[in-house]
Simulated scan of single mutants.
Amino acid sequence: MLAYTRKWGECMATRQAFIELVVPIAVKLRLENSPIFPSVRIAQAILETGGTVNAWNNLVGYKVGNGVLTPYWQGDRVSALTWEIINGTRYDNVPSDFRAYPTIVAGFRDQDLLFQSSRYVTVRNAKSPGEQTQALQNSGYATDTAYASKLNSLIQSNGLTRYDEEVIKMLEQLQAQIAALQTRVSALEGQASLKEVPAWAKGAVDAAVKAGLIDTPNDGSYDFYRLLTVLHRKGLI
């Protein structure tokens, strides 16, 4: 099935094409502290849209709800028919209003705002994709009583947890870079004020003291002692 999106200007001819479109967005948002695992976000987008990008860029079935505007939703909406399960009975062709967004990213970010409410605390605190899909169902995000199992099936059949692992690796690399920078900063701070004169600079320091150029030889930085040494070797002190 082909689905055309005016925003992206391309046809989503396969499930994999749809996944590849959503992956970088889901990963980026997770790195920016989104509570939603990339695997869950991608699976939910597939389940809610059938793997196609609708023209209103709402890939998560987010309805208008209370209608309160947000930084990512300015009131645009699209009316469509859907189905709901109420008290165990399925009702088809239920008219509903869905939020419409200028971009896919805006839709996902608006959903993240929704998940900040107390109703979705278990979704935010989930430690695994499976725990999160069950939390979505238990929190009433959808009326489908098989919502969690459908999401889990999509995650498994499409190997979506590899994108969760990708985020973990990226975070580990970032933490390693931060640790290296912190080590470097500590080293530079240590060089900024040495507790004693380096052995290689003692001759230059003695000459500078004798010449009356300095009176606190034990309170200099690495660069200070290096400069004195260069001047001393050039016979300037």
Rank of each mutant, 00 (worst) to 15 (best):
Y101F: 15
S118Y: 05
N125K: 13
N54T: 07
A148P: 02
Y141E: 01
F98A: 01
K127L: 14
S96F: 09
G235Q: 05
N87H: 11
A148S: 12
I36S: 04
L81P: 01
S153H: 08
F108H: 14
A176Q: 14
V123H: 09
P129N: 09
Q173R: 15
L213E: 05
N125L: 14
Y141V: 08
R184M: 11
Q156T: 10
L181S: 13
A3C: 12
N218F: 10
Y147K: 02
N87P: 04
L47W: 02
R99C: 07
A126C: 07
E20Y: 10
Y147H: 04
I19M: 04
K169I: 10
K210N: 07
W200Q: 13
L21E: 08
A17E: 13
A208F: 04
E10K: 15
V230H: 09
Y91A: 10
S79P: 01
S153M: 09
S96C: 13
A17N: 05
L151K: 11
D97P: 03
A176M: 09
N152E: 12
G159S: 03
I25S: 06
A13H: 10
T216V: 10
T70V: 08
T82R: 10
V123A: 07
A17H: 10
G65R: 03
E32W: 04
A204E: 03
A179Y: 00
R30F: 02
N93H: 13
Q16P: 03
L227T: 07
Q137D: 01
V185Y: 05
W56G: 06
V123P: 06
L151W: 07
L171M: 14
S79D: 11
S153E: 09
E32Y: 05
A3N: 11
V185C: 11
Y225M: 03
T161M: 02
E131M: 12
S149K: 12
K127W: 05
V78E: 05
A45E: 00
A207P: 06
R109F: 00
Q191K: 13
N152F: 06
A180K: 10
I25C: 06
R30M: 03
W200A: 15
P129V: 03
A17Y: 00
E20R: 13
I36F: 11
P24T: 01
I36Y: 03
I86A: 06
